[in-house]
Simulated assay, not measured.
Amino acid sequence: MTMMVGFLRKALVLQVRFTLSASPTPQSLPYLHHYLYPFSSSSEAHSFTVSHLMNSCGFSHKAALSASKYLHFKTPEKPNSVFAFFNSHGFSESQTSKITRSQPQLLVSDPDKSLLPKLQFFYSKGASNPDVVKIIASCPVIMKRSLENQIIPSFNFFKDFFQSEEMTMATVKRFSRVLIVNPHICVESNINALQESGVPKSNIAALLSLQPRAFMVRPNHFREILDEVKKMGFDPSKTRFPTAVQAMTGMSKSTWERKIDAYKRWGWSEEDIWLAFTKSPWCMIYSEDKIMATMDFFVNKMGRESSLIANRPFLIGLSLEKRIIPRYSVVQVLLSKGLIDKDVSLVALFESTEKMFLEKFVNGYKEEAPQLLNLYQEKVNLSGKARGKG
C-alpha cells in the first residue's frame, strides 16, 4: 500500500511538472487552477465569476460557464473597469456586453494599457467616435490583436496600396476584419492576380475599398474565378469585370444556384440568366427576396413579360420603395386618363434620372393631371418614413 501511494505521488508530481513546462492551453488552465489553489477558494472564485458574468455583464448561463473556464476573478473591479472603459468611449451597454461575450478575456485586461491604445490609433487616423464604436462592435476580436504586430502593419498595407489614409479608413469602416488577417496571404496575391489579368489599378482599388471581403478568398480559387469571368466574355479593362468577380466570390455555390433557380421560376432560361449577368453582374448579387419581390412587381403588378427584365437587368436593382412604387403611382394616374400607352418603356419610367422623370411624366401633364406632383411626393415621403421606422 505504501509503495502504491508513493507511486501515485511521483506520478502526480511528474504530471504537474509536465503541465507547467508545456505551453498552457485553455483546456489545461482549469486543471492547473484547481491543483495549485485550494479547492474551496477556486470553487468560490468560479461561482463568483459565473454569477458576475450573468448578472452584471449580460452573459447567458451557458456563455458564463464557458467563459469561466478561461478566466477567474474574486472581485468585480477588473470586469467593471472594462465596462466603464467602453461606456466612457461611447459604447452602449448592449454593445459592450456583445463585445465581452465574444471576447471574454477582455474582462481581465488592463483598459489603459491594452484597450485604449487601439482606440487612440483609430482616432489618429481620422476615425470619429461613432466610427470607432462601429469598427469594434462589428469585429470585437480586434481588441485582442496586437496593435504593433497586427493592426498597424495591416493598416499600413492598405494605406500603401491606396496611397490614402482616408480611403484605408473607409475600407476598415466597411469591413473591419481586414485588420485581423495577414494581407500578404490572400489580399496581396489576389491584387496581383487582377493586375496580371489587365484590371486597371483604379478598378482594383474601387473593388478593394467597397468590397474588401472579395479579396479574402484563397488565391487558387480566386484565380479560377478570374478565368471563369474571362471565359464569359468580360473585359478586364471595364468596371463590370471586378463586379463579376465580386459576385462570384461573394457567395457559396449553393447560394449561386438558388438565385439561378429564382430567375428560372420567372421563366428565364439559362441563356437569359447569363445574358443578364454579362449586362449587369449585380443581378446575381441581389438577395433572393429582392429578386423575387422586384420580378413579382414587374410581372404581376405591371403585367410585363419577364423576358423584358432579362434584357434590362439593371431594373432589378432599383428600389421598390424609393423609386419603382412612387413612379408607378404616377403611371397609374396617367394610364387611367389615357395620357400614356400601357406599354410605355420601363427604361424611360424607371431608369431615367429624377429630373428627367419629373419633366416627362409629371410636369409634362400639369394641366391634365395637376395632382401628380403631390401624389408622387407623398409616395416618396412615405417610403422615407418606412425606412426611418425600419
Results as ranks from 00 to 15, higher is better:
Leu119Tyr: 01
Tyr365Thr: 05
Ser81Gln: 04
Asn192Val: 15
Asn182Lys: 15
Met169Asn: 03
Glu270Cys: 01
Thr100Leu: 00
Phe297Val: 11
Phe162Gln: 06
Trp266Phe: 15
Pro130Cys: 06
Lys125Met: 12
Arg218Trp: 04
Glu367Tyr: 03
Ala22Ile: 07
Ala63Tyr: 01
Asp272Tyr: 02
Phe86Tyr: 15
Ile142Glu: 01
Glu257Tyr: 03
Asp296Met: 08
Ser102Tyr: 05
Ala262Asn: 09
Thr353Ser: 15
Pro200Ala: 14
Asp235Pro: 05
Pro326Phe: 07
His184Cys: 11
Ile136Asn: 01
Ala214Cys: 15
Gly6Val: 06
Leu315Cys: 04
Ala214Glu: 06
Asp227Glu: 15
Phe122Arg: 08
Gly303Lys: 10
Ser102Pro: 03
Gly390Thr: 08
Gly388Leu: 13
Ser237Met: 12
Gln377Lys: 15
Glu77Asn: 00
Thr75Val: 09
Phe222Trp: 12
Met292Arg: 13
Gln120Asp: 14
Ala170Gln: 15
Lys118Gln: 13
Ser40Asn: 06
Glu321Trp: 04
Arg223His: 13
Glu188Arg: 13
Leu308Met: 06
Leu53Ser: 02
Val347Cys: 05
Thr171Asp: 11
Lys322His: 15
Val181Cys: 09
Leu334Ser: 05
Ser51His: 10
Gln163Ala: 11
Asp227Tyr: 14
Ser109Glu: 00
Asp289His: 09
Leu12Met: 12
Gly388Ala: 13
Leu210Arg: 15
Ile191Asn: 06
Phe121His: 06
Gly58Val: 06
Leu115Ser: 04
Ser102Ala: 13
Thr239Asn: 12
Met167Gly: 08
Ser146Gln: 13
Arg258Pro: 01
Lys366Trp: 01
Lys159Pro: 03
Gly317Trp: 04
Met1Phe: 03
Met143Pro: 02
Gln371Val: 07
Ile152Glu: 05
Glu351Met: 08
Phe361Ile: 11
Leu372Lys: 02
Ile152His: 05
Asp296Val: 08
Asp160Pro: 02
Ser21Gln: 14
Thr168His: 11
Val133Asn: 04
Val330Phe: 03
Gln371Tyr: 02
Gln150Trp: 08
Ser56Tyr: 02
Asp131Arg: 05
Glu367Gly: 03
Lys253Met: 10
Ser109Pro: 00
Ser66Trp: 03
Val380Trp: 03
Trp256Asn: 10
Trp266Val: 11
Glu359Ser: 12
Ile191His: 03
Gly90Lys: 12
Trp268Leu: 03
Ser154Tyr: 07
Ser307Lys: 12
Tyr286Lys: 06
Thr168Phe: 13
Lys290Gln: 14
Lys125Tyr: 03
Phe175Asn: 12
Ser202Arg: 14
Lys62Gly: 10
Leu194Trp: 07
Arg304Ser: 09
Gly384Val: 13
Lys264Met: 14
Val331Ile: 14
Phe314Gly: 01
Thr25Cys: 02
Leu116Phe: 09
Val347Glu: 14
Lys231Phe: 07
Trp282Lys: 10
Gln95Val: 09
Leu36Gln: 07
Leu315Pro: 01
Ala45Tyr: 00
Pro183Val: 07
Ala214Lys: 01
Glu270Thr: 05
Lys301Arg: 15
Gln27Pro: 00
Ala45His: 01
Leu210Tyr: 13
Pro117Met: 08
Pro281Ser: 04
Pro219Ile: 10
Val299Arg: 06
Pro212Glu: 07
Met251Glu: 11
Glu367Lys: 13
Ile324Phe: 03
Tyr70Leu: 05
Ile316Cys: 02
Thr353Glu: 10
Tyr31Ala: 04
Ser124Cys: 10
